[in-house]
Amino acid sequence: MTRPEETVMTPRRLVQSICAALTLVAAVPAYAQREVVRYQEYPGSIIHLGNWVMKEKGFCEKQGLDCQTVLLASGPLAQQAAAAKSVDMIVSSMDVMLQAASKGNDLMVVGSMMTNNIYSLSVGAHVPQPNAAAGYGGNMKDLADKRIGVSARGSATEMYVKSLFAGAGVPSDKVTFIAVGGPPSAYAALQAKQVDAILSWDPVPALCEATKSCTVAVDMRKGQGPDDVKAMNGGFVVWQARREYVEKEAGKIEKFLRAQDEAFAWLRDPKNAAETLEIAKKYFKLGDVPNREQVIQQVVTETVGQYGAKLDRKVIDGFNQFLVKNKMIDKPLDVKRVVYSKAP
C-alpha cells in the first residue's frame, strides 16, 4: 500500500526528480539529438574527400547534423533512390541532373561541389603525336582516326569528345568509340592498348604522369577545350534533392552546405596537408600502382583545387546549349525550375 507521504511532492523530492531527469538527458547519445541527413557517395571516389573531412573533423556535428552516407554507384541509381526517399541529397555532373529533370524527375540543384569540368582526354604512350606541340588543336588532329574510350556509348563523355573534335575543326567520322567504364577499367584498357585514348577523370591524369604510360592531351579541368565546353564551367558537379525535400528540409540543406564550406576551408589550409592525406588514404583505395604515394598526393591536391561551393547560374545556359545541340534534351530548362533559389 502507498503511504500518503509518498504521493506528496516535497521540495526535496522535486529537486531529486529534476536531477534524475537531467541525468537521463545527459545519458542520451549526442548523435540522437542531431538531425539526420542522408547523402550519396560514389564508392571510393576521391571527389568525396570533402565529405570525408566533414565527418572526420566534426563539421557535420558542429552544424547539428548526423551525416549518413549512402553508397550508390551511378547518377541514375542515385536519382531512383532519391525518388524512393531512401536518400536525401545526391551528387552528379550537371548534365546528368538536367537530363533527368527534362524527363520529369523533379530534382533541384541545391549547391555546387566542383566548379569546373572534371574530365580529361589522355593518350596512350604507344600513340604517335606529331602535332602535340600545337596544343589542343594538334592533339585532336593526331586522334582523328583512333580508338577512343568513353564511359559508355551515347554518354556525355562521348559527346564531350565529339565537341573537342568539332571545336578544333577536326572531323571525327573515322573515330571508333569504345565503352570502357570508369577510371580503373578505362586506364587498364589504355595500358593494354585496347584503346588509343580515353576521356575519363581522376585519378587517370595522376596515373599518366606517375607512370609515363600516357599523357594528358586536353585537360578540361584547367579550362582547355572549345568554348561550348568551357561554358559549362561554374558549377559542374552539383548537389541535388527532390523538390519536396527542398521545400520541407531547406534548413538541413543549408546546414549541410555550411559543413561542406568548412570542410573545403580546412582542406585548403596548408597546415592540414598531412592529415588530409591520411584521411584520403582511409577511404580512397588506389591499389598496386607505380609511384603510389606520388599519385595519391597529386590526386588529393588536384581534387582540393577543384572544389567550389558557389554556383554560377549562367552555367545552366552552357549545359542547356550543349545538351540541346547533342540531342540529349529536347529544349532548354528554366534555371528557376532546376536551381534552388537559396543555393549559394
Rank of each mutant, 00 (worst) to 15 (best):
M1H: 08
T2L: 10
E5H: 10
E6M: 12
T7Y: 11
P11G: 12
V15E: 14
S17F: 10
C19T: 11
L22W: 09
T23H: 11
V25I: 03
V28D: 08
R34M: 09
E35W: 02
G44D: 08
G44S: 09
I46Y: 05
H48F: 11
L49T: 10
G50S: 14
V53P: 02
M54P: 04
K55D: 15
E56K: 07
E56W: 04
K57V: 14
C60H: 05
E61D: 12
K62P: 06
V70G: 04
P76Q: 03
L77Y: 06
A78F: 03
A82K: 02
K85C: 04
M89R: 04
I90G: 03
S93Q: 12
S93W: 02
D95W: 08
V96S: 02
K103A: 14
K103H: 15
G104F: 11
N105S: 15
D106Q: 15
L107F: 13
V109W: 01
T115R: 04
T115E: 11
G124K: 01
Q129P: 01
N131T: 15
G135E: 14
G137F: 09
G137D: 14
G137E: 13
L143K: 00
A144Y: 05
R147D: 06
V150I: 09
A152E: 15
R153F: 09
R153H: 14
G154W: 07
S163H: 08
F165E: 04
A166F: 06
G167I: 04
G167D: 05
A168Q: 02
G169S: 11
P171Q: 09
T176E: 14
I178Y: 05
A179R: 01
A179I: 08
G182L: 13
G182F: 05
P183I: 02
S185E: 11
A189S: 11
Q191V: 11
Q194D: 13
A197H: 00
L199G: 01
S200Y: 02
W201G: 00
W201C: 00
A206H: 02
L207M: 13
C208N: 02
S213T: 12
V216Y: 01
A217R: 04
A217G: 15
V218R: 00
G223K: 11
Q224Y: 05
P226M: 06
P226E: 00
D227L: 13
D227A: 13
V229F: 03
K230W: 08
K230Q: 11
V237H: 03
R243M: 14
Y245S: 04
V246L: 06
E249I: 00
A250Q: 08
I253M: 08
E254L: 14
A259T: 13
E262A: 15
A265S: 11
L267N: 06
P270L: 11
P270C: 07
K271A: 10
A273P: 03
A273H: 08
T276E: 02
E278K: 05
K281Y: 04
K285Y: 07
G287V: 05
D288W: 06
V289G: 03
Q294F: 06
V295G: 02
E302W: 05
G305A: 10
Y307G: 01
G308P: 04
K310T: 15
L311W: 00
D312R: 05
R313G: 10
K314W: 07
V315L: 13
D317P: 04
D317K: 15
F319M: 08
Q321H: 10
F322L: 14
L323V: 07
K325R: 14
M328K: 12
M328H: 06
P332E: 05
P332V: 00
V338P: 00
V339N: 02
K342Q: 12
P344R: 12
